[in-house]
């Protein structure tokens, strides 16, 4: 690693090398394939279902006989909920929201959390102290209150055009209900980077006195260069693992906020809200938990395999494959 770091030409081959190693990791490839499959299903699935069976995530059958929880069948591979809505359609639509929640929060956590933690850890002293105390304060402020206030201030009828535009990306009509989801993304992003910052800072503190940092400094690399070229790549293992851990935790946080009425708006669903509705009926309509739960678990597993693969692939000293 230390050798690589002083010769940026080789650095590009490091990434190609990593890619090659990643593709040789069967579990990681499996994870990647599943994630791609789920993403594609979530994007095109709802349209396909509507075309074939006429069901959408919010379609309640006109025939009263069909307005009830029905076990899985050919028409409804995942069964229906008490309103007779197709759970598959709801799982696919819920996937859009859950995946977006996961992706956005992880990106925030990676971009903000990692740089923040690295800078604090590297600079140390007063600046580190100040930056970490800000994190401490943010920990203590109840984020539910933040969400309540965000919704009250921005969640009104007159949401700006760009919010409406973004909501269309999620696949819903641009009405006011959904802008709540964006606020939710924002609020979850706001808190998701805090622990990441602490984790990274801890790593950097322990790495910054290593010889390779001294060597880099001696050869005139700037602070920014040291942090982003040398320190962060060496702390990548825990970072990737923690990032893959962030996804489930924000998905759950979303489910909890939905439970309080601060999350995704009915009739939209998320995997978390589907699972929390399903668990209540586990003893009578088990399919309502099993299918959303399995989809979510499969996604998280795949993500994790991919994360581990990435970690191993980016680690120049692990040459097991």
């Amino acid at each position: 690693m230390k050798d690589d770091s002083t010769s940026p030409v080789k650095g590009t081959s490091l990434w190609r090398d990593a890619m090659r190693r990643l593709l040789r990791n069967r579990l990681a490839v499996f994870g990647l394939i599943v994630l791609v499959f789920i993403s594609v299903s979530v994007i095109v699935g709802p349209a396909v279902i509507e075309a074939t069976t006429g069901y959408t995530y919010d379609y309640i059958p006109a025939d009263n006989e069909l307005v009830k929880a029905m076990a899985p069948s050919l028409k409804h591979p995942m069964g229906t909920d008490e309103a007779g809505r197709d759970i598959l359609a709801r799982v696919l639509q819920g996937g859009r929201i859950s995946l977006l929640v996961g992706i956005i929060s992880t990106l925030v956590s990676l971009i903000v959390g990692v740089s923040y933690g690295a800078i604090a850890g590297f600079l140390g002293g007063r600046i580190d102290n100040l930056m970490m105390r800000i994190v401490d304060i943010l920990y203590a402020i109840p984020y539910i209150l933040i969400v309540v206030v965000l919704l009250a201030v921005f969640g009104g009828t007159n949401s700006p055009e760009w919010i409406k535009w973004l909501t269309k990306l999620i696949g819903a009509e641009g009405n006011q209900g959904i802008s709540q989801i964006l606020l939710l993304f924002f609020a979850l992003g706001l808190v998701s980077w805090l622990t990441m910052a602490r984790v990274v800072r801890g790593q950097i503190l322990s790495l910054k006195n290593e010889e390779f940092v001294l060597a880099a400094r001696a050869s005139g690399v700037s602070n920014v260069g040291i942090i982003f070229r040398h320190l962060i790549p060496n702390a990548l293992g825990p970072v990737i693992v923690y990032a893959t851990l962030t996804v489930p935790s924000v998905m759950l946080a979303e489910a909890f906020l939905s439970f309080l009425g601060l999350g995704v708006q009915a009739p939209y669903a998320s995997w978390g809200s589907l699972a929390s509705a399903g668990i209540k009926n586990i003893a009578i309509f088990p399919w309502q938990l099993i299918f959303p739960g399995l989809t979510m678990a499969l996604t998280l597993f795949s993500l994790n395999f991919l994360g581990d693969g990435l970690r191993d692939a980016l680690d120049p000293q692990t040459r097991k494959f």
Partner: peptide, 12 residues
Amino acid sequence: ITVSLKSQEFRT
């Protein structure tokens, strides 16, 4: 007519 739903916590 699609009436959008707005679920709010109690005080709000």
